[in-house]
Design a protein around this nucleic acid. Structure first.
Length: 290
DNA sequence: CGATTTTGACCCGCGC
DNA sequence: GCGCGGGTCAAAATCG
């Protein structure tokens, strides 16, 4: 039963940021900073990434969980643009035009990042330089306390790569949705600070329904989460919330659905669109501030 | 037999 | 210009 329902309310300043109300917000952010060791990266603290995550420890109680959601410029600095470009080149080359074009275009077409025009233009330039139009799809990161790396989320994934990352002793795994028409990808990595934490970053939107719901009586939860996620994807494409990795703890963020706030039951945390990579690219709000 | 995973190599952009 | 790091590909291996 979802009982933890932190009040989620849009930032009064506008539509560019969302935050959970509550005293714990600060603590949550602090947790993030602590968790991430002050933001990894060799100095790419430029990334305009804002997110908070209240992980705390297992026994801290779920009420201590209240994700902070911030809209993130589609193209911030860092390696993301570069990677995106590279990715674009490859995908363009290997993916069936129908498939990639179908899903990708639908997303990119409605994803004109109003903010960060320069950077967007920069990125666009780089990609267009090769005659490839490619916009990065919204990303959403989850931090989950789990022993399992690859969490069930109702979709089928195929692993296509694994790479050791600089800031973490744990390798990062790359997964792609097995649906040929679906271009959604996800990266899974363990936190270097807390090995028990799995960071999953989803990229893109599923253009299909789940292959099968996870077993157990949690169907409704997951189904609801998926449905909500779909809604979210439609209403707020830039804040796409993927289905929860945990069957019994669908956690998604939907700023406009106050009656269905993120129910962070387990220890799954929804993070705002992480434009950069995973841990190494996490930048705490404090860092962003400077 | 088909699907998935593993793993090394390759490509690309960025920072120095 | 060079080196580094991230992301992806593709062939081989493994599994159901």
């Amino acid at each position: 039963m979802e009982e933890e329902r932190p009040a989620l309310e849009p930032d009064a300043s506008g539509e560019s940021s969302w935050a959970f109300s509550g005293d714990g917000a600060a603590a949550a952010i602090a947790s993030l900073e602590d968790l991430c060791g002050g933001g990894g990266g060799d100095g790419d603290g430029e990334g305009e990434i804002g997110w908070g995550l209240p992980l705390g420890h297992p026994g801290v109680g779920e009420e201590g969980v209240f994700p902070r959601l911030l809209e993130v410029p589609e193209s911030s600095s860092g390696s993301a643009p570069a990677v995106a470009a590279a990715k674009a080149a490859r995908e363009e080359r290997s993916d069936p035009p129908a498939a990639s074009g179908d899903a990708a275009s639908s997303v990119s077409s409605e994803e004109p990042p109003p903010e960060s025009d320069e950077k967007a233009a920069d990125t666009a330039n780089k990609t267009c330089k090769k005659g490839i139009k490619r916009t990065r799809q919204p990303r959403f990161a989850f931090m989950t306390k789990s022993e399992i790396d690859h969490l069930e989320d109702g979709y089928r994934w195929r692993k296509y790569g694994q790479k050791a990352v600089k800031n973490s002793p744990f390798p990062r795994s790359y997964y792609r949705c097995t649906n040929s028409k679906c271009t959604v990808k996800k990266r899974v990595e363990r936190s270097s600070e807390d090995p028990s934490i799995v960071i999953t970053t989803y990229e893109g939107q599923h253009c299909h329904h789940t292959v099968s719901y996870p077993r157990g009586g949690s169907h409704l939860h997951t189904a609801a989460a998926l449905a909500a996620a779909q809604q979210l994807a439609l209403s707020a494409p830039q804040l796409y919330a993927p289905p929860s990795p945990f069957t019994q703890s669908p956690s998604l963020i939907h700023p406009q659905q106050e009656q269905r706030p993120p129910s962070l039951l387990d220890r799954t945390l929804a993070l705002p669109a992480v434009d950069e990579g995973l841990l190494g690219d996490i930048v705490s709000p404090a860092t962003r501030n400077r």
